[in-house]
């Protein structure tokens, strides 16, 4: 895929466009679990950000380098020791949190390295997921596409669950957008929204330190 193509692909990603609205032009962005670099390519093209990606997968690292996206090959689970505190304006974790072993550690590291964090995750509380569970099966959907036996996901959560964790960690949520099939959901988001996008920052010292 050419760089133009991945930017075009990114333009069709509704969540990317929403994330971009929260990012100041020419700011410094760290994208954790950056995949093929499409979000960073998109943000660089639209907002001229100074961006770096982090990914542990060989093919993703190769794809980023091929698109001229700065990428650091490392495992997020090991923390972000290679990054100075508050050295980024934004640290993004797009559809990756649910696959992390050390969920709290990653959130804490995001807010050590970045002034603000931006996160997206599939809402496990989405009504279609609930119906599948009630019918006796693990949910499978556009945002949770894997079967239970081959999913990389370890820590799926609902919108309410995530907000409870933020409260426990003394993380202040500054913005939230919940979407379903590209449309913003404001009524009963924990039931009707399939994807959640948050912007947040540290509110004083986290309680659980």
């Amino acid at each position: 895929m050419s760089t133009t193509e991945i930017v075009r692909e990114a333009e069709n990603r509704h969540d990317f466009a929403l994330i971009a609205k929260w990012i100041q032009p020419q700011s410094k962005v760290l994208d954790l679990g950056c995949g093929n670099g499409s979000l960073l390519s998109f943000l660089r093209e639209k907002l001229e950000v100074k961006g770096y990606g982090v990914d542990k997968d060989d093919n993703n690292v190769l794809a980023c380098i091929g698109h001229g996206v700065n990428v650091i090959q490392m495992d997020l689970e090991a923390g972000l020791a290679g990054f100075d505190s508050l050295s980024f304006d934004y640290v993004i974790l797009s559809q990756t949190l649910q696959a992390m072993v050390n969920t709290e550690g990653v959130l804490r590291e995001m807010l050590r390295v970045g002034k603000q964090g931006i996160i997206t995750f599939p809402n496990f509380g989405y009504w279609r997921h609930r119906i599948q569970l009630m019918a006796g099966h693990m949910p499978v959907s556009d945002n949770i596409p894997h079967q239970w036996y081959n999913t990389p996901n370890l820590h799926l959560c609902t919108i309410d669950d995530f907000e409870a964790l933020c409260a426990k960690m003394n993380i202040r949520i500054t913005d939230r957008i919940v979407i379903n099939e590209g449309d913003t959901v404001s009524f009963m988001p924990n039931l009707l929204g399939s994807l959640a996008i948050y912007r947040f920052e540290q509110a004083g010292w986290p309680i659980s330190y």
Binding site: N70, I72, G82
Partner: peptide
Amino acid sequence: VKALLDNELSVSYAEV
């Protein structure tokens, strides 16, 4: 890599 990041230089790092 850390020192290059501290200086906000463009850097990619591959651990083969």
